[in-house]
């Protein structure tokens, strides 16, 4: 009798485990309809929760352990940080029928050379925006243009030390992933001369600041510029000459996840061309799914803000984990913000 109950409980437990998938994603990063369709088709119940920074997500996975989530969506350099720390489970690509849809140009990146741990979900860039009505067409084309004297007090920078110092490194011709303290210091010194131009640091919602015309030029994310264009068509997005900062958000399975089977099924579902198309069109960032790109509405596919040309991406760089050198970046970031 006892063993019968045990068996029943075990079966129930397994049943529950197979039927529930816990997804932890960026806020406003997956259309509701996609989740509902997945639930209907697979019979798997999805529990969905969100975060708004890699750091918050990382702190949760690190302290609560991987068993709380089945799918997480870290950005570029958090993938190699987390895999290096053994926080991620290997993905079995034989279970992903739609893996071949992915653009080889976005696979095998340095943060996960064999894509053992991560499957690209959406990608985008951090470049420059400017108000063409206020400054005229073609006013800026390079990061170094931000230093022009006439932009005093008119500039927005993102509130992210890797991006801001990375931008300065690129403008000096260095890699934005450098671990050389001399180069980071040179970028800091160059940034101190940019401060008189800076009106504010904002990563939360740069589009709102551009739309309200508090600033006329500065750094921006491509998706934010795209969304701002519905209200402000004169906001132009620029891929700077010295190279744009590119990032990819990837689907990963944390080590210890309870429902590895369902996680694979979910990843494979998101890789379907028609699903990836819906996501890219509704969220406003680019899909790495080549088959989906073919299905896109022509005006979305032709929009250089979301889908840059190969020329736009010359010299572009993916952000990588810089390891312990991050403390050097932090030190100069604090110096920059305290005006020392």
């Amino acid at each position: 009798m006892k063993s019968l109950i045990m068996a029943a409980l075990l079966a129930l437990g397994l049943h529950a485990a197979n039927k529930e998938l816990v997804v932890y994603n960026w806020s406003e990063y997956l259309p509701e309809s996609v989740l509902e369709d997945f639930e209907k088709e697979s019979g798997i119940k999805v529990r969905y929760s969100t975060y708004d920074s890699n750091e918050a997500m990382y702190a949760k996975i690190k302290t609560a352990g991987g068993e709380s989530y089945d799918i997480v969506v870290p950005s570029t350099y958090f993938v190699n940080k987390m895999s290096r720390e053994g926080l991620l489970a290997k993905i079995d690509k034989s279970k992903l029928k739609n893996y071949a849809n992915l653009d080889p140009k976005l696979l095998g990146k340095p943060f996960d050379p064999k894509n053992d741990y991560s499957i690209p979900y959406l990608w985008g860039s951090t470049g420059m925006s400017y108000n063409a009505k206020a400054l005229g067409e073609g006013a800026v084309s390079a990061w170094s243009d931000l230093w022009k004297k006439e932009y005093a007090g008119k500039l927005l920078l993102t509130d992210d030390l890797r991006e801001v110092i990375g931008m300065a490194l690129l403008s000096l011709g260095y890699s934005s992933n450098t671990t050389n303290p001399k180069e980071i210091e040179a970028a800091y010194t160059k940034l101190t001369t940019l401060i008189p131009n800076v009106k504010l640091f904002n990563s939360e919602s740069p589009k709102g600041v551009y739309i309200s015309e508090e600033v006329v030029v500065g750094m921006n994310f491509n998706g934010e510029n795209y969304m701002a264009n519905t209200e402000m068509p004169e906001l132009r997005y620029v891929y700077p000459k010295e190279g744009v900062l590119v990032w990819v958000d990837s689907l990963v399975i944390p080590k210890g996840a309870k429902n590895i089977e369902a996680a694979h099924a979910f990843i494979d579902y998101l890789l379907r061309p028609e699903v990836a198309k819906t996501i890219s069109e509704e969220i406003g960032y680019a899909t790495p799914n080549m088959a989906a790109v073919k299905l896109l509405e022509p005006e979305v596919a032709a929009n250089r803000i979301i889908y840059p040309t190969a020329d736009d991406l010359t010299k572009s760089e993916f952000q990588l984990d810089v390891g312990e050198a991050i403390t050097i970046y932090e030190k100069y970031w604090e110096k920059l913000k305290t005006g020392n």
């Binding site: 920074s53 750091e55 918050a56 990382y58 702190a59 509130d159 030390l161 800076v198 009106k199 504010l200 640091f201 904002n202 991050i326 403390t327 932090e330 604090e334 913000k337 305290t338 005006g339």
Partner: peptide, 21 residues
């Protein structure tokens, strides 16, 4: 309101916990 141009103790502590870990 100030555009995050200056660090004060409150944001400094938050950064240590959340951003710089």
């Amino acid at each position: 309101l100030g555009g995050a141009k200056n660090l004060i103790i409150g944001s400094f502590i938050r950064n240590q916990f959340l951003t710089f870990r």
